[in-house]
Design a protein around this nucleic acid. Structure first.
Length: 618
DNA sequence: CTAGGGTTAG
């Protein structure tokens, strides 16, 4: 772990800050590529014109024409035009059009166009179904993708490795990794296709997604042995996954293996993953080194790289440095995008600097960037944290007015805010509204609502909601149990707390330190120090060591009982374990000593567990 | 000529 002060120097002393953008100035905007009706005329001209030179140019540059389509309306008009042409446009042309629509991410429209093609009996080939299957997959409708595969069979279209890897990717996008694995194995075993590097990489990505990195690495080795060389994408997939799981050192090891043993050149994506991994662990010096390395390799950082830096700096509270990175981006001709600004806005919101956050918001709109739901979620979060709920509600309505769809995070943030200021009724109304808007509550929603109800003296409501949640995946997260045990305890319903605690074990869930700590706290509150101490000793045996909080909680129980001896032992244990005492426990102790109900000899022990003042840093 | 894989939100 390095000194966070090195961040500023890490950014500004870096050689890249001295570079001037040149190649990057060749942005689309500078090339004069814009969307809109002016372009449409260019596309349609050949169809309306009888001039042979126009037809000639169309024949010579068939690809460029489709690549220039930048909005859906143009594409749809062109499609109509093509269906009416005599003689009919070739499959190739239709494929190019479908792909153009797909490139614009209008997946549903692509599927619709394909349906229209079929209604008009326009012929299609394997390219066509591959494009459309891909669209289904991107829409999380992989089942339809498989149906299309069958439809293709009926039309004697033989699927190929593209078809199968697209479907495999669809299953993985839908988190159906087990099914994906079965599908993958079946393809190989029955020799339905010869897996290539993309298919292996897709499967590896699936394994990474559900956190089985070692299995992913195993497959990486296996494909190599089977004569299919992993490439930079394959390695980057695994490297990124390791970084996300905070196993940056393993990621670095794999990175070195890729470069030094396999002679595969990393690209900007590989570096971005590593830089993000290092930044998220505050290993700034190494991140800086990585940035320098990529520059040495003549790989220039892109908007993504800079956004990662902005995000990491903001999350660590160094928003000013993040602003510096954005200035640097402009210098290098890499215009920040919505994601970049979102991180900055989030940074200000986390610091409660809402005025600054709004300024950034305005400046991004001035630059023609359209704020998305993530932008609004940060702002909502900022206002809610400051308890400026009216402001948050106002913003919430603005989101809807702008035609943006609030997502589960939006609702969670808003719910949290409403509960914070005790507006339970409004919160509950919003909670039901979210269902009617087809936004599925997640585990966080339930945790927020359960905690909100508990904090507002409505434990019974919390409990009935908990029972309503039933036996689905949602109540297999331990947090909800911790919240309810704590809530029940604070409402002096020890039996209920006990029951829920028991429930954790009955359900086979893994209790955390917090689970034990809240239960111990519940016993302490009732003065049942025998039971508290029993559980305290037991947790260690069950493989869950108490932390500072656990010690403070049980200490408070014994302080109230004025048990000098136990307090001494606990304080000594805390010192041995390097734990520190929190403010409220400390003041409780000192009060009792002042009142002479505890002995002053404790002061020496207390001195050892008072957190040391750390000055200078942060 | 036309198709598939890897990096950023609470």
């Amino acid at each position: 772990m390095t000194n966070p002060k090195s961040i500023a120097s890490f950014i500004f002393s870096h050689p890249l800050s001295k570079f001037k953008g040149n190649a990057s100035m060749l942005s689309l905007k500078n090339l004069g590529l814009r969307t809109g009706p002016c372009l449409l005329q260019t596309f349609l001209a050949p169809f309306h014109s009888t001039s042979s030179s126009d037809c000639q140019s169309q024949r010579n540059h068939p690809r460029i024409m489709f690549e220039k389509i930048t909005n859906l309306d143009d594409a749809l008009i062109l499609f109509d035009e093509m269906t009416q042409r005599q003689p009919q446009s070739s499959v190739l042309k239709f494929n190019q059009l479908l792909q153009a629509v797909t490139r614009m991410k209008h997946f549903a429209s692509s599927v619709e166009l394909f349906k229209q093609m079929n209604a008009l009996r326009i012929p299609f080939n394997v390219y066509t179904i591959n494009i459309v299957i891909n669209c289904c997959c991107k829409l999380y409708r992989t089942t339809e993708g498989f149906a299309l595969l069958g439809y293709g069979f009926k039309h004697s279209i033989k699927p190929n490795v593209f078809t199968f890897s697209t479907l495999l990717n669809g299953l993985i996008l839908e988190d159906k990794v087990l099914i994906a694995e079965r599908f993958f194995k079946k393809l190989i075993k029955e020799e339905l296709c010869d897996p290539d590097v993309i298919m292996y990489s897709t499967m590896i990505k699936g394994l990474c997604n559900c956190g089985i990195n070692d299995k992913a690495i195993g497959l990486l080795k296996l494909m190599d042995e089977r004569g299919c060389k992993p490439n930079v994408v394959t390695y980057s997939t695994v490297i990124d996954s390791l970084c996300k799981d905070e196993m940056v050192d393993d990621a670095l090891k794999l990175f070195k293996h890729m470069v030094l043993r396999k002679y595969i050149r990393p690209n900007v994506v590989t570096y971005n993953s590593l830089i993000r991994g290092l930044c998220s662990l505050c290993r700034w010096d190494e991140a800086s080194k990585m940035l320098k390395d990529m520059e040495d390799e003549r790989i220039s950082p892109d908007v993504w790289t800079f956004s990662i830096l902005v995000d990491a700096l903001c999350k660590e509270g160094h928003v000013e440095d993040a602003e510096g990175v954005i200035k640097l981006m402009f210098q290098r001709g890499k215009d920040p995008n919505v994601v970049t600004y979102n991180s900055l806005i989030d940074g200000y919101c986390l610091q409660g600097e809402m005025r600054k956050a709004s300024e950034v918001f305005d400046s991004m709109e001035l630059r023609g960037l359209v704020p998305d739901i993530v932008t609004y979620n940060s702002l909502l979060n900022g206002y809610c944290k400051k308890l400026e709920i009216e402001e948050a509600l106002h913003l919430f309505h603005e989101i809807i007015k702008k035609g943006l769809k609030p997502n589960v995070i939006t609702y969670n943030t808003m719910l949290h805010g409403l509960f914070l200021i005790g507006r339970c009724k409004d919160a509950y109304k919003l909670f039901s509204e979210m269902r009617s808007q087809n936004v599925i509550p997640d585990r966080f929603t339930y945790e927020i609502v359960l905690e909100g109800l508990c904090n507002n003296n409505q434990v019974d409501e919390a409990l009935s909601l908990f029972h309503l949640m039933g036996d689905n995946k949602l109540n297999s997260y331990i947090n909800a149990y911790n919240i309810l045990i704590d809530g029940a305890s604070k409402s002096r319903k020890l039996d209920i707390a006990r029951n829920i605690f028991k429930n954790v074990f009955d359900k086979g869930l893994e209790p955390t330190v917090q689970t034990y700590t809240v239960m111990i706290g519940a016993f302490c509150l009732e003065g049942l120090m025998g039971e508290a101490k029993k559980l305290f000793n037991e947790m260690e045996k069950r493989g869950c060591s108490p932390n500072s909080v656990t010690y403070c909680v049980i200490l408070q129980g014994f302080i109230k009982k004025e048990e000098q001896g136990v307090i001494e032992i606990l304080l000594k244990e805390m010192e041995d374990k390097g734990f520190s005492i929190d403010a409220s426990t400390l003041s409780m102790l000192l009060d009792q000593i002042k009142a002479r109900s505890l002995d002053g000899s404790l002061v020496k022990l207390i001195g050892k567990v008072v957190p040391k003042e750390v000055d200078g840093l942060v």
